[in-house]
Protein backbone atom coordinates (compact mmCIF):
# COMPACT_ATOMS: atom_id res chain seq x y z
CA UNK A 1 0.00 0.00 0.00
CA UNK A 2 1.38 3.38 -0.92
CA UNK A 3 0.08 6.78 0.14
CA UNK A 4 0.23 7.99 -3.43
CA UNK A 5 -2.16 5.27 -4.61
CA UNK A 6 -4.57 5.98 -1.75
CA UNK A 7 -4.62 9.69 -2.56
CA UNK A 8 -5.04 8.96 -6.26
CA UNK A 9 -8.04 6.67 -5.79
CA UNK A 10 -9.44 8.91 -3.07
CA UNK A 11 -9.71 11.95 -5.30
CA UNK A 12 -11.08 10.06 -8.26
CA UNK A 13 -13.80 8.39 -6.21
CA UNK A 14 -14.44 11.59 -4.27
CA UNK A 15 -14.96 13.47 -7.51
CA UNK A 16 -17.62 10.94 -8.44
CA UNK A 17 -19.38 10.93 -5.06
CA UNK A 18 -19.54 14.72 -4.75
CA UNK A 19 -20.75 14.98 -8.29
CA UNK A 20 -23.40 12.38 -7.55
CA UNK A 21 -24.41 14.21 -4.38
CA UNK A 22 -24.99 17.40 -6.28
CA UNK A 23 -26.84 15.61 -9.05
CA UNK A 24 -29.15 13.76 -6.64
CA UNK A 25 -32.62 15.23 -6.19
CA UNK A 26 -35.39 16.57 -8.40
CA UNK A 27 -33.76 18.10 -11.42
CA UNK A 28 -35.65 21.41 -11.35
CA UNK A 29 -35.83 22.09 -7.61
CA UNK A 30 -33.05 24.54 -6.60
CA UNK A 31 -33.39 23.48 -2.97
CA UNK A 32 -32.23 19.95 -3.84
CA UNK A 33 -28.94 21.14 -5.32
CA UNK A 34 -26.45 22.76 -3.00
CA UNK A 35 -24.00 25.33 -4.38
CA UNK A 36 -21.34 24.22 -1.87
CA UNK A 37 -21.52 20.72 -3.20
CA UNK A 38 -20.95 21.97 -6.74
CA UNK A 39 -17.96 23.98 -5.55
CA UNK A 40 -16.52 20.97 -3.76
CA UNK A 41 -17.15 18.79 -6.80
CA UNK A 42 -15.26 21.24 -9.04
CA UNK A 43 -12.29 21.54 -6.69
CA UNK A 44 -11.97 17.80 -6.14
CA UNK A 45 -12.37 17.15 -9.85
CA UNK A 46 -9.59 19.64 -10.63
CA UNK A 47 -7.31 18.01 -8.08
CA UNK A 48 -8.12 14.57 -9.50
CA UNK A 49 -7.17 15.91 -12.94
CA UNK A 50 -3.82 17.17 -11.72
CA UNK A 51 -3.14 13.86 -9.97
CA UNK A 52 -3.47 12.19 -13.35
CA UNK A 53 -0.91 14.45 -15.01
CA UNK A 54 2.19 12.85 -16.39
CA UNK A 55 0.98 9.26 -16.61
CA UNK A 56 2.29 8.12 -19.97
CA UNK A 57 0.42 4.82 -20.16
CA UNK A 58 -2.55 4.41 -22.46
CA UNK A 59 -5.02 3.97 -19.64
CA UNK A 60 -3.46 7.03 -17.99
CA UNK A 61 -4.36 9.16 -20.96
CA UNK A 62 -7.95 7.83 -20.92
CA UNK A 63 -8.19 8.64 -17.22
CA UNK A 64 -6.96 12.15 -17.88
CA UNK A 65 -9.43 12.60 -20.73
CA UNK A 66 -12.44 11.56 -18.64
CA UNK A 67 -11.35 13.90 -15.87
CA UNK A 68 -11.00 16.78 -18.32
CA UNK A 69 -14.52 16.10 -19.58
CA UNK A 70 -15.87 16.20 -16.02
CA UNK A 71 -14.01 19.47 -15.35
CA UNK A 72 -15.37 21.12 -18.44
CA UNK A 73 -18.96 20.03 -17.67
CA UNK A 74 -18.80 21.16 -14.05
CA UNK A 75 -17.15 24.48 -14.82
CA UNK A 76 -19.75 25.20 -17.49
CA UNK A 77 -22.47 24.39 -14.93
CA UNK A 78 -20.86 26.84 -12.47
CA UNK A 79 -20.56 29.46 -15.21
CA UNK A 80 -24.24 29.09 -16.09
CA UNK A 81 -25.12 29.53 -12.43
CA UNK A 82 -22.89 32.58 -12.03
CA UNK A 83 -24.03 34.26 -15.24
CA UNK A 84 -27.73 33.80 -14.46
CA UNK A 85 -27.63 34.93 -10.84
CA UNK A 86 -24.91 37.61 -11.01
CA UNK A 87 -24.42 38.44 -14.66
CA UNK A 88 -28.12 38.76 -15.56
CA UNK A 89 -29.33 39.39 -11.98
CA UNK A 90 -32.21 36.95 -12.31
CA UNK A 91 -33.60 34.63 -9.66
CA UNK A 92 -32.84 30.93 -10.08
CA UNK A 93 -35.73 29.38 -12.04
CA UNK A 94 -36.51 25.65 -12.36
CA UNK A 95 -35.50 25.77 -16.06
CA UNK A 96 -32.05 27.16 -15.30
CA UNK A 97 -31.61 24.78 -12.40
CA UNK A 98 -32.41 21.79 -14.58
CA UNK A 99 -29.84 22.85 -17.20
CA UNK A 100 -27.18 23.21 -14.47
CA UNK A 101 -28.05 19.81 -13.02
CA UNK A 102 -28.09 18.13 -16.41
CA UNK A 103 -24.61 19.52 -17.10
CA UNK A 104 -23.45 18.04 -13.83
CA UNK A 105 -25.16 14.81 -14.92
CA UNK A 106 -22.85 14.73 -17.92
CA UNK A 107 -19.90 15.21 -15.62
CA UNK A 108 -21.24 12.35 -13.51
CA UNK A 109 -21.07 10.02 -16.52
CA UNK A 110 -17.47 11.05 -17.17
CA UNK A 111 -16.63 10.46 -13.52
CA UNK A 112 -18.26 7.02 -13.63
CA UNK A 113 -16.11 6.17 -16.65
CA UNK A 114 -13.11 7.39 -14.76
CA UNK A 115 -13.83 5.13 -11.81
CA UNK A 116 -14.50 2.17 -14.11
CA UNK A 117 -11.12 2.75 -15.74
CA UNK A 118 -9.56 2.93 -12.31
CA UNK A 119 -11.08 -0.44 -11.41
CA UNK A 120 -9.88 -1.95 -14.69
CA UNK A 121 -6.40 -0.61 -14.05
CA UNK A 122 -6.43 -1.96 -10.51
CA UNK A 123 -7.59 -5.43 -11.53
CA UNK A 124 -5.17 -5.57 -14.44
CA UNK A 125 -2.14 -5.19 -12.25
CA UNK A 126 -2.33 -7.92 -9.63
CA UNK A 127 0.42 -7.35 -7.17
Amino acid sequence: MSFEKVAFAFFIVMALTLNFGFFLGDIDVPAHHNVYELFAAIIVSLIATIMKFGDRTQIGSYLLATSLVADVQLIIAALVWGIIVHGLNQPMTPEHMSSIVSLSGGALLANVTSVVLLIIEASRVRR
Partner: peptide, 11 residues
Protein backbone atom coordinates in the same frame (compact mmCIF):
# COMPACT_ATOMS: atom_id res chain seq x y z
CA UNK B 1 4.43 15.44 -13.82
CA UNK B 2 6.73 17.87 -12.09
CA UNK B 3 3.99 20.51 -11.70
CA UNK B 4 1.55 18.16 -9.94
CA UNK B 5 2.30 19.21 -6.37
CA UNK B 6 2.52 22.99 -6.98
CA UNK B 7 -0.79 22.94 -8.86
CA UNK B 8 -2.56 20.90 -6.19
CA UNK B 9 -1.33 23.31 -3.50
CA UNK B 10 -2.49 26.27 -5.58
CA UNK B 11 -5.96 24.84 -6.14
Amino acid sequence: RRMRLPLIILI
